[in-house]
């Protein structure tokens, strides 16, 4: 099973679409934005170069968690690779758990790369006590998005899963304030944003760098979304693999 997870990760790292959209894109976006606004500071005195680093790392992680789960999974279901695995001794639950672990693993490259660029290029400097909770929160917080990706992959055909995953990802990124600071939103948008898992997820990161720790409300909302989408993913996976 470990080897299965390793090959799953390996195949995505060889996938050009994954590398460009998921790994390279957030880094480039960060460099452009930080180049323009990096020197300014926000209300709580955090330089934009740091806040943007968190936003772009969150965006990269969101993109990675959805793109490395939904489409490959839908393809495997459709093309018969899933059936090839179903007739091996590997139990059904192990397939989906491995997919989940591999997708979580694939979140790390974009998350870490944006951070490294932040430190090396933009001169971001944070104490270790901030880095550790920041990266852990941004990593483990992707669980709801991986679950959403797998739910999409269990439900739609490969052709439909691609746009569905893209649209969900962009909607979550926009509504969650990953591209434009949430302070720029109107009241209505702000209320919507606070209900999304993506805003709450990124807010975990923003709160850490503002020195506020991990807000319980954010953890609660992200956790609730994780549970709800996780349950949906399990249900849809079972429906997709049922023996008729």
């Amino acid at each position: 099973m470990l080897y299965y997870a390793k090959t799953e990760a390996l195949r995505m790292l060889r996938n050009r679409r994954y590398l460009i959209f998921v790994v390279a894109f957030p880094v480039v976006l960060y460099l452009i934005n930080a180049g323009i606004y990096g020197k300014q500071t926000d209300d709580s005195g955090v330089p934009y170069s740091v806040a943007l680093m968190v936003s772009m790392a969150a965006y990269g992680a969101l993109a990675a968690s959805m793109m490395s789960s939904a489409v490959p999974w839908a393809q495997e279901r459709q093309t018969g690779w899933l059936r090839q695995l179903q007739i091996t001794p590997l139990p059904g639950w192990a397939i989906i758990v491995t997919k989940l672990c591999a997708a979580m693993l694939l979140v790390l490259p974009s998350l870490l790369l944006v951070s490294v660029v932040g430190v090396v290029v933009e001169g971001v400097s944070l104490p270790v006590g901030t880095w550790v909770p920041l990266l852990l929160a941004l990593w483990l917080g992707t669980l709801p998005f991986v679950a959403l990706g797998l739910a999409i992959g269990s439900t739609l055909s490969a052709d439909a899963a691609q746009p569905a995953a893209m649209i969900s990802m962009f909607a979550l990124a926009l509504a969650g304030g990953l591209w434009f600071p949430p302070e720029a939103f109107g009241d209505t948008m702000r209320t919507i944003a606070e209900l999304t898992p993506s805003y709450r997820y990124a807010d975990l990161g923003w709160s850490v760098i503002a020195g506020q720790g991990l807000p319980a409300s954010d953890l609660l909302v992200v956790g609730a979304w994780g549970l709800a989408l996780g349950a949906a993913a399990v249900f849809l996976y079972r429906r997709a693999t049922v023996r008729s």
Partner: peptide
């Protein structure tokens, strides 16, 4: 088993 339709993983 070798089933009729069974794609491989293209990147491996």
């Amino acid at each position: 088993a070798m089933l009729q339709d069974g794609a491989l993983i293209p990147e491996l």
